[in-house]
């Protein structure tokens, strides 16, 4: 575990690195993202939920780190670090909630998944096999970030690991299911994006006004279920 000042009002906590490593360096890509480090992020997040820290304004969890934003008029980096160390010492005893399994229906290919064929070709498999691979895995929600309700899911089966597009699309439709590196995810809103698109879900990932605004939360497990175009159209109608 390591602490790193990020700004005059924020502090980063990194997990999965020895404390005695010289200098404070962010984990590089070649460092494995581990489920264990992510679990520690989730435990610390839960501790701060149970026992909110006075002066803390916001928390940004990620794969193996937690960014803590605070009010510098109320708190100093050193004070915050001391409090967080205390939480980390105790957090192994804090139970994580039973993971939920969320099924997300996806209509693969066609105009919904414009990159499906290319991805299959790159891996010398058929589009049907690519769909089978993508839908056969249980994914972990490592964290939500980038945009409201955008969940970073991993790990993709080895045979689907594909770099992101060299030229990001100017606009990716809401509901698009994409892959990038060993990650997969669903675009909750229409934004620019560089992930390769395999399909689209009729489900709303983020809906203000719904009790659970975001369909997914950190720590959830996700499985994609292939559906037909008819089912997609029907679900869209029911949502409307």
């Amino acid at each position: 575990m390591q602490f790193q000042i990020a700004s005059d009002q924020s502090l980063l906590v990194y997990f999965g690195r020895p404390e005695n490593e010289n200098g404070a360096k962010a984990p590089r890509l070649e460092n494995q993202i581990t489920i264990e480090s992510n679990e520690r992020v989730r435990r610390l997040l839960r501790m701060t939920d149970f026992e909110p820290i006075r002066g803390v304004r916001n928390l940004h969890p990620a794969y193996c780190s937690l960014l803590i934003k605070f009010d510098a008029m109320l708190l100093r980096h050193k004070e915050l670090e001391e409090i967080v160390r205390g939480y980390i010492d105790r957090m192994e005893r804090a139970a994580l909630p039973e993971p939920r399994l969320v099924e997300i229906p996806v209509c693969y290919g066609g105009e919904f998944g414009p990159d499906l064929e290319e991805v299959a070709e790159l891996h010398r498999i058929t589009p049907a096999q690519a769909i089978e691979l993508h839908a056969s895995t249980h994914y972990l929600v490592y964290f939500l970030g980038f945009a409201p309700g955008f969940a970073y899911l991993g790990e993709l089966p080895e045979a689907l690991v594909t770099p992101r597009l060299t030229m990001p699309r100017r606009s990716v439709p809401a509901g698009s299911v994409g892959i990038a590196g060993s990650q997969t995810g669903v675009y909750p809103i229409s934004t620019p994006g560089g992930w390769r698109l395999l399909g689209r879900t009729p489900v709303e990932m983020f809906r203000p006004g719904r009790a659970e605004m975001s369909l997914l939360s950190i720590g959830d497990r996700v499985r994609f279920v292939a559906i037909s175009r008819e089912k997609f159209a029907q679900a869209k109608l029911e949502n409307a």
């Binding site: 990020a6 984990p27 940004h60 990620a62 193996c64 960014l67 934003k69 970030g145």
Partner: peptide
């Protein structure tokens, strides 16, 4: 690098070497 939480006003250096300052509607990571 591995994605991590980003602060308001963070000066990122993109692959092109040019800076982007994250602002109020910033992405969170």
């Amino acid at each position: 690098m591995i994605s991590e939480g980003v602060s308001l006003g963070a000066v990122q250096i993109t692959a092109s070497g040019l800076p982007i300052i994250l602002f109020v509607e910033q992405q969170t990571t």
